[in-house]
Design a protein around this nucleic acid. Sequence first.
DNA 1: GAAAATAGAATGAACGTTCATTCTCTTGTA
DNA 2: TACAAGAGAATGAACGTTCATTCTATTTTC
Lengths: 215, 215
Amino acid sequence: MRRSNAQLQSDRRAAILDAAQRCFSRDGFHQTSVQQLCLEAGMSAGNLYRYFPSKEAIIAGFVERNRAEAAQDFATVGEAASFFEGLGAIAQRYLIERPEEEVGLCAEIMAESRRNPEIARLYQQLERDVHALIVDMLRRAAERGEIARDVDLDAAATMLMVLADGMSWRRAASPGFDAKAVLPHLMHMVHSLLVHPPDGLHPPDGETRRAETAA
Amino acid sequence: MRRSNAQLQSDRRAAILDAAQRCFSRDGFHQTSVQQLCLEAGMSAGNLYRYFPSKEAIIAGFVERNRAEAAQDFATVGEAASFFEGLGAIAQRYLIERPEEEVGLCAEIMAESRRNPEIARLYQQLERDVHALIVDMLRRAAERGEIARDVDLDAAATMLMVLADGMSWRRAASPGFDAKAVLPHLMHMVHSLLVHPPDGLHPPDGETRRAETAA
DNA sequence: GAAAATAGAATGAACGTTCATTCTCTTGTA
DNA sequence: TACAAGAGAATGAACGTTCATTCTATTTTC
């Protein structure tokens, strides 16, 4: 008697997600029809529904896959020799080298999470995970003296995520954006955030120090 | 013979855009049906089509309205006494006080511009306009000596937009995000970007200067 | 009373999903 | 080894619904 093949199931699910990534990133979730998706995946509609209970479940499938990948990336890349070296590698990987398609899909997920509660739940969990990973990374760096000891770890991690989001969006939305060119400026800002952080919570002494120091 | 009432036309268009803003921000472009839109606007479908030739034209209508508003905001707020004061006011206005609904709509527009060529065209024009306004603002500040004279105006303006995008997205996507709390950190980074910019284009001297200075 | 303004039913295409059916493989039995 | 039984894998047409848009009739306003 024939038995259910677990490997095949998993392969098919992955293949569907791959096809969906191409479709969704190109056309968006709600403008991609299930028929288009089937065409891209080389599979009939009926069969596709054997692997995912609904179109929405495919969307949710991404967020979970992305989470697994992000966690692994941080774990491996975070093992660099020095903190800023590791950070640079992550930046290179996530802000420069990540393919257009993934950036687009990420944009799509974020937009979707604003209105779909299930996606929102998954996406926010991913965010919390990434935030925790960054805080850990910063804590280790602070303990080793590579960044200031009085850095507000939580706020700093949030700022790094703000920067990453901003870079992603610029890449996704404006074709002329040269991520590589602005990266040094970004790293400069990050450096000042982590190595020379603002004292306490009051804003930096904007008016007193003037531009004479540079030039 | 009765003549078409231009004022009424303009009012109706504005009312439709207002209703659409609520709908689109809540449900997204493609999950908002024309019927829902009519309900929200208190208007029949047939009548709505007298004011916009298609649903897509309504989406496009936003980007143009936003552009007009952004330009005006920059023009008026940019007239502050000092540069950092003006920048703070813009940040307060755009990153903290902007209503959730507008942030959501902006997210929607950005996502849509990735795949709809007409929206992309309009959105990228808006971006270029804003970029030019920021560069002007920075140039005036550099001339007055409020920021370093050797700042790469173009890259700095781009970085400010990256930061703004990042903040907007964090607001839109994660409900626990406290924009007000991270703003001082952001301003600190901006200060270092503009007042103590990186020398030339090589990355900051990450490893040499250590955290001993702070603590 | 004529045209602008509005309403609401009508239209056909496209959607996500289901279902009866067929194909393909594994396995128990002779 | 040969083969039929049986179940997983896959198909693609069909379903009811919803969509953006158009058409026709009615009301309002000058």
